[in-house]
Computed example of a mutant assay.
Amino acid sequence: MKNSIQILAAVALLSIASCSDDDDVTIINEEELITTVELELTNQADATNVALFKSVDSDGDGPNAPVITITGAVNANATYDGTVRFLNESIAPSENITEEVIEEADEHEVFYISTLSDVSIAKIDVDSNGNPLGVQTTFQTGAIGTGVLNVVLRHEPTKPNDNTLSGAGGESDVEVAFTFEVE
């Protein structure tokens, strides 16, 4: 993901310091900091049934573990519309990284890995080539159970892929694990 102002400043500085037009300019593209991941699930049959899974890692890759909160319930035998958001809340105002993920959809994909076999997850949004993105999803629950739901944002995955992290390649921009309980 690009920070346009930093890139323009770096190019301008290198252009001023450059001795000839033949010099190669290498710009390092630093990834955005993602401190917060929010997954909201809204029951298609009952819009008042909303579950919010939130992970806040205020020190990024620092030593402190993320704070995980889960509000609301996920019902058995139900269909949920899902939306994931990626935020950088280390700055004020906070930055919605999800907008950049959508703008650069060809370079990103969100993966959902559930240890519950009775939960199916479908990505419903796509990039400009028709490949899945995964910011918008549908969750279909089955029987009652408890497991783990991993949400992973991959940067520069192979597209199309087999919907597995190993098959997608690329690098993880952020990865969180939620306890996922179907009631």
Rank of each mutant, 00 (worst) to 15 (best):
D81I: 07
I102Y: 08
T137P: 08
R154E: 08
C19P: 08
V11W: 02
E32Q: 14
N161A: 13
T42H: 02
A76V: 06
T146I: 09
E183K: 10
I5R: 15
A143Y: 00
L33A: 07
P160K: 05
V174F: 03
I7Q: 11
L149D: 02
Q6T: 08
E30V: 06
P63I: 11
E103I: 05
A78E: 13
N77D: 15
T164C: 11
N131H: 11
S117W: 01
Q6P: 01
N150S: 15
T138Y: 02
I91S: 05
N43C: 11
T137C: 10
N43Q: 09
A10D: 13
D23G: 07
I121K: 07
Q6D: 14
T35K: 02
E107W: 10
L149V: 07
D81P: 00
V152A: 10
V135R: 04
H108F: 15
D59R: 02
A76I: 06
A73S: 14
S15M: 01
E40D: 02
N163E: 15
F86K: 04
I102F: 06
Y80N: 01
L41H: 06
N75L: 14
V11K: 12
D24N: 11
S55T: 12
D106R: 11
V151Y: 03
T179N: 11
L13N: 12
T35Q: 00
V119L: 15
T79H: 01
D125N: 13
I28L: 08
S15C: 02
K159G: 05
T141E: 08
T35S: 13
F180L: 12
R85M: 06
T141H: 09
V50M: 07
N29H: 12
L8H: 10
P132G: 02
I28Q: 07
G142K: 06
F53L: 15
Q136Y: 08
V84E: 02
N163L: 13
D106V: 13
D24E: 10
S20G: 12
D22H: 08
A92Q: 10
S18F: 02
E183A: 15
V84Q: 04
T138I: 15
D23V: 12
V74N: 02
D173Y: 03
L165P: 03
T36I: 04
N75K: 12
V182L: 06
